[in-house]
C-alpha cells in the first residue's frame, strides 16, 4: 500500500494505491489512522469484526471509514491493524485490531470528523487499485 496526502485549504485528503481491492480498503483505513496518531504507538489488544453493505464501492469506502470513526468516538478505541477478509462491490468483511485511547502514549496529530463524499473515487488501474478521500478535520 502506498499513500500520499492531498493539499486542501481547510481539510486533508489522501490518495491510496494498492495491488488488490482488499489491500486498498486496509490501506485507506491505515492512512486515515496515521493522520490521527502515530500507528507505532497503537497496540493490538482488542479486535472488532465489521460487516458492511453498500450500493457501490465509493459508498462502501464511505461507510467503512465513517464506521471506524464512529468506534473511535463512541468506544474510545484506536486501530492499527486492518484485515479485509472479503470485499466486493456491495460487501465488506473485515477485522480490525487496536486498543483503548491512552493519553499517556497516544499523541494526537489531528481530529478527523468524517470521511466525505467530496471528490471520492475508487478506481481500478492498469495494475491494482486507487482511492481518493477528503476528510473533514
Amino acid at each position: 500500500m502506498r499513500f500520499k496526502t492531498i493539499e486542501h485549504t481547510a481539510d486533508i485528503g489522501i490518495e491510496v494505491e494498492a495491488d488488490t481491492l482488499g489491500e486498498l480498503f486496509e490501506g485507506t483505513a491505515a492512512a486515515m489512522f496515521s493522520l490521527m496518531v502515530d500507528p507505532e504507538t497503537v497496540r493490538k489488544t482488542v479486535e472488532r469484526e465489521l460487516s458492511l453493505e453498500a450500493g457501490d464501492l465509493e459508498e462502501l469506502l464511505f461507510i467503512w471509514l465513517n464506521e471506524l470513526l464512529f468506534i473511535v468516538d463512541a468506544e474510545g478505541l484506536l486501530f492499527s491493524g486492518f484485515e479485509v477478509k472479503n470485499v466486493g462491490d456491495s460487501r465488506l468483511l473485515a477485522t480490525t485490531s487496536g486498543e483503548k485511547i491512552n493519553p499517556e502514549r497516544h499523541k494526537f496529530l489531528e481530529e478527523i470528523k468524517a470521511a466525505t463524499y467530496h471528490e471520492m473515487t475508487v478506481e481500478r488501474q492498469d495494475s491494482g487499485w486507487k482511492a481518493r478521500v477528503i476528510f473533514d478535520v
Binding site: 470513526l69 468516538d73 468524517a114 463524499y117 471520492m120
Partner: peptide, 30 residues
C-alpha cells in the same frame, strides 16, 4: 461534536439513495 458528525454521515447516505432513486443530477456526491 460527534452527534453532528454522525447525523450528517447518516443523512448523506439517506440523501445519496434519494438522489439516485429520484434521478436528481448533482455534480458532487457530497
Amino acid at each position: 461534536r460527534g452527534v453532528g458528525h454522525q447525523i450528517c454521515t447518516d443523512y448523506l447516505q439517506v440523501m445519496d439513495h434519494a438522489v439516485k432513486r429520484m434521478g436528481i443530477e448533482i455534480p458532487d456526491r457530497q
